[in-house]
């Protein structure tokens, strides 16, 4: 855990450093010329290029709005599963402007012209809310189906799943959420196996196994590999 933990710090440091980097000024003394006399690199204010720090940014609100339904799939009514929040007249897509889209930073190009994509604590909070709500919705939809499941497509939940079945299902979910096709024994795969086992508990009945896959789902939605570019 500690080994991973510094990574979050490193990301934070890099992003912080990016935002405070000084930049060089342009020489604009030539009247009528649209460019600097020096045709070299022209830095925009706040540029990070002088220290060449790599940056990681989270998915934008637009990207999240498209991504979550594609990952979550359709519900029993053939409608894309969305993260819904209650607003006034009823539930709305949380990533829409009527929902939380503006608050999460979607620019309107009038008052807000740039989307800050640092994975800050506000984002992490909403990521957890989203994961909890959406994974619950996916589970409910899967429970209404007789096949073509989203959360347990490779492993049964009405009987005890074998280790291989659990591995295959974990692999499928990791590919679906993270775009990674892992080999047996991969650290990340084993990490998620622990998540599954912890969420499932010692029981192996249907509900327990569903709990396990729902827990994996929630962890995957909050994995930096899911939301960081």
């Amino acid at each position: 855990m500690r080994y991973r933990a510094w990574c979050g710090l490193a990301v934070g440091l890099l992003l912080t450093a990016t935002s405070v980097v000084a930049c060089s000024s342009d020489d604009e003394s030539a009247e009528g010329s649209p460019v600097a006399r020096d045709d070299g690199p022209n830095k925009k204010p706040g540029s990070a290029t002088e220290v060449n720090l790599p940056t990681l940014s989270r998915l934008t609100v637009d990207e999240l709005q498209l991504t979550v339904p594609l990952i979550a799939g359709m519900n029993e009514n053939a409608q894309w599963i969305q993260w819904l929040v209650n607003k006034g007249a009823g539930p709305v897509d949380a990533y829409s402007n009527e929902g939380l889209g503006k608050m999460m930073g979607r620019p309107d190009f009038v008052a807000v012209t740039n989307e800050a994509t640092a994975p800050d604590t506000l984002y992490v909070k909403f990521a957890r809310d989203m994961a909890r709500e959406v994974c619950q919705s996916i589970r409910k939809s899967d429970e209404t189906r007789s096949g073509n499941f989203t959360l347990w497509s490779q492993a049964p939940v009405d009987s005890a799943a074998s280790d291989d079945e659990i591995t295959n299902n974990l692999n499928r979910l990791i590919l679906r959420f993270l775009g990674l096709r892992l080999q047996a024994g991969d650290d990340l795969l084993e990490t998620y196996r622990q998540v599954y086992l912890a969420a499932r508990g010692s029981a192996t009945d249907s509900d327990a196994q569903k709990n396990g896959w729902q827990g994996v789902c929630m962890a995957l939605f909050q994995d930096p590999a899911f939301y960081l570019h």
Binding site: A5, P119, L188, A219, D223, P224
Partner: peptide
């Protein structure tokens, strides 16, 4: 395998908050 975990571990960003 390790790199995947290193860069994008499931608890990565939250690690600092969790006290590492």
């Amino acid at each position: 395998k390790r790199r995947v975990v290193t860069l994008f571990g499931a608890a990565g960003l939250l690690g600092l908050v969790l006290g590492a």
